[in-house]
Simulated scan of single mutants.
Amino acid sequence: MKNKEDWKRVYGKTHSQWNLVSEAVYGLTELHRKDIKGTRLVANPGCFSSSTILALAPLVREGLIDLDKIVVDGMSGTVGAGNKLDRALHQPEIHNNILFYNVVNHRHSYEMEQELSVIAGQSVHVHFTPHNVLISRGILYECCD
């Protein structure tokens, strides 16, 4: 994330090396291959961000999608939720359920908006809702406008 205030708000702390952010290249080779080759610092994109940006980039580039009304639903296996003990991710709780989380201000939304805005040459707004589903690994997302 290139916006310092957004970064502080989203992550709830101060970046320890903010002076390096301006030289970091967002690490999607499909979009930034040349810049990545020439940098010493690559920013690691999020999983949901990567899949969403790569799916939407052609639509945004060609003006085939409403940039103010992009809705993304992402579903991830429970491994994507980390290894912290959480009752909601306990097998008896999540079995036969889809658990949404961080519906407002999910940190990956900002990555999606930042990169898609660069492609569009204007502000892009993404409403992203992540879900945990009872699979160990994997990711599925659906985008629509």
Rank of each mutant, 00 (worst) to 15 (best):
Y101D: 07
W18P: 09
G74N: 04
H125Y: 14
A120C: 10
M112E: 08
I36L: 03
I119D: 06
K84Q: 10
K4S: 02
H108R: 05
K37T: 02
T39K: 03
I36T: 06
V126N: 01
L54C: 08
H108G: 04
L28I: 14
V42N: 03
G74Q: 10
N44Y: 09
C144T: 13
V126P: 03
H95E: 11
E142G: 09
K34G: 01
S76V: 15
F100Y: 13
G12R: 11
N105S: 14
K84D: 14
S51G: 14
K4Q: 11
R87Q: 12
Q91C: 00
T39P: 08
D6S: 09
E115D: 15
E142V: 12
N105T: 09
V21L: 05
L134S: 04
V72M: 10
D35C: 01
V60S: 05
D66N: 00
E113C: 13
G74D: 05
T14P: 08
D73N: 12
S109L: 04
R107F: 11
K84H: 07
C143P: 03
M1I: 06
E93V: 11
V133A: 07
G46T: 06
K34C: 03
V72T: 09
S136T: 04
K13G: 01
Q114D: 15
T129M: 04
I53A: 03
P92V: 07
D73R: 11
M75V: 00
K34M: 04
G80I: 09
V103C: 09
S76L: 12
A43L: 03
G12C: 09
E62D: 14
R107C: 13
Y26R: 03
E93Y: 11
A81N: 02
K69G: 00
A120G: 02
T52Q: 03
L85Q: 02
A55D: 05
G38W: 01
S123L: 06
L85C: 01
D86A: 14
Q114A: 13
E5N: 15
R87F: 09
I119E: 06
H131S: 04
A81T: 05
S117M: 06
V103M: 10
H32N: 14
D73E: 13
D73I: 01
L89Y: 08
W18C: 08
V10A: 10
G80Q: 15
G80H: 12
V72I: 11
G82Y: 01
K8R: 14
K2M: 09
N3V: 10
S117W: 04
R9Y: 08
H15G: 01
S22P: 01
Q91F: 03
G74R: 07
V42E: 08
N83D: 13
R33K: 11
L99H: 13
N96D: 11
E115I: 15
L67S: 02
V60W: 00
K8C: 04
W7I: 06
D145S: 15
S22F: 02
V79Y: 13
M75D: 03
N132E: 02
Y11E: 04
G80W: 08
D68R: 07
P92C: 02
T14I: 14
A24R: 13
